[in-house]
Computed example of a mutant assay.
Amino acid sequence: MTLKTFAFLAAMMAATAAGMAHAEERRITVDAIGTVQVAPDMATITLGVTNQDAEASVAMKATSDAVAQVLSRLTDMGIEDRDVQTRDLSLSPVWSNRNQQNGEPPEITGFVASNRVFVRVRDLSQLGQIMDAVIQDGANDFGGLSFGLQDTKPIEVQARAKAVGEATSKAEQLAQAANVTLGPVQSISERTGGVRPMAEMRAFSVADTGGVPVAGGEITVSVSVSMEFEISE
């Protein structure tokens, strides 16, 4: 037998052995999701001011003055600079005769100026009062309100533990149903599901000072895992 033939046979035997070993591997793979519901401790609102006037400069000045007053009020109420950000600033013409069929050309008859800001409220007990105050100061454009958590990591730890426990329980049930013995974990991976509002809302006390009524409800933090267990002999 030549050296080349011997090397070829050795490679074939190694490949066959590896294939048999792989074929003998028996695994149980399960997926699970762990969720934790908690009350929010932060809110984000998008608010702004919109004004229309025949003169562009007048519309923009009225909007800018009102926004400056809103920002000053937010500062007075304890909102930090890092929690306020301009979202968009726009100035658009108002057209007349744009869709007319009489042949007359369209004409600009005015301008609309808009300035919207993103505000993060870390003290939810002030949320209703803040919304009420900025409306009084000229805010006439609200783009949304959402609740969240300032730090999701502790809740994610709980959700992760629940997901692993659920996956392990599923694997044990499958092993018992198949009349096999569940072995050690061979691999595990996770995917964070993020934070989302719960459909079932819970009343949230704003204040007794007459602010805009809001409901904080609950939010859910979820983590999904995929685990692979060995089947022992």
Rank of each mutant, 00 (worst) to 15 (best):
L3D: 11
K4H: 05
T5E: 15
T5V: 09
T5S: 12
F6K: 14
F6E: 12
M13E: 01
M13Y: 03
A14S: 13
A15G: 11
A15Q: 07
G19S: 12
M20P: 00
M20C: 08
E24G: 10
E25S: 11
E25P: 00
R26H: 13
R27S: 10
V30T: 14
A32V: 02
G34N: 07
T35S: 14
V36A: 07
V36W: 02
V36Q: 09
T44K: 06
I45Y: 01
L47K: 00
G48I: 05
G48V: 05
N51K: 14
Q52F: 03
D53G: 10
A54M: 13
A56H: 01
V58S: 06
V58Q: 04
A62G: 15
A62N: 15
S64R: 12
V67L: 15
A68G: 14
Q69Y: 03
S72N: 13
R73G: 04
R73D: 12
D76V: 10
M77L: 15
G78E: 02
G78A: 09
I79G: 01
E80T: 14
D81W: 07
D81Q: 13
D83K: 00
S90A: 15
S92K: 15
V94N: 10
R98S: 11
N99I: 06
N99P: 00
N102C: 08
P105N: 11
P106W: 06
I108G: 06
I108Y: 06
T109M: 06
V112H: 01
V112K: 12
A113M: 06
A113G: 10
S114H: 05
R116V: 15
V119E: 04
R120C: 00
V121D: 02
R122T: 13
L127H: 04
Q129M: 15
Q129F: 01
I130L: 14
V134L: 00
I135L: 07
I135H: 06
G138M: 09
A139M: 04
N140M: 10
D141I: 02
D141T: 11
G143H: 07
L145E: 13
L145K: 04
L145G: 09
L145Y: 04
G148D: 13
L149Q: 11
D151H: 10
P154W: 11
I155N: 04
Q158S: 14
R160P: 01
K162M: 11
K162A: 12
G165R: 06
E166Y: 11
A167Q: 03
T168F: 07
K170M: 12
E172I: 03
E172N: 06
Q173T: 13
L174D: 02
L174E: 09
A175P: 08
Q176W: 00
A178G: 05
N179H: 09
G183A: 04
V185I: 15
S187L: 06
S189F: 04
G193F: 07
S205C: 04
S205G: 10
V206C: 08
V206W: 01
A207S: 15
G210C: 08
G210Y: 05
G211W: 08
I219K: 13
T220R: 09
T220P: 00
S222K: 03
S222P: 01
V223F: 06
V223P: 02
V223C: 05
V223Q: 08
S224C: 07
S224F: 01
V225Q: 07
E230M: 13
E230R: 15
I231V: 15
S232W: 02
S232Y: 08
E233Y: 02
E233F: 02
E233I: 00
E233R: 14
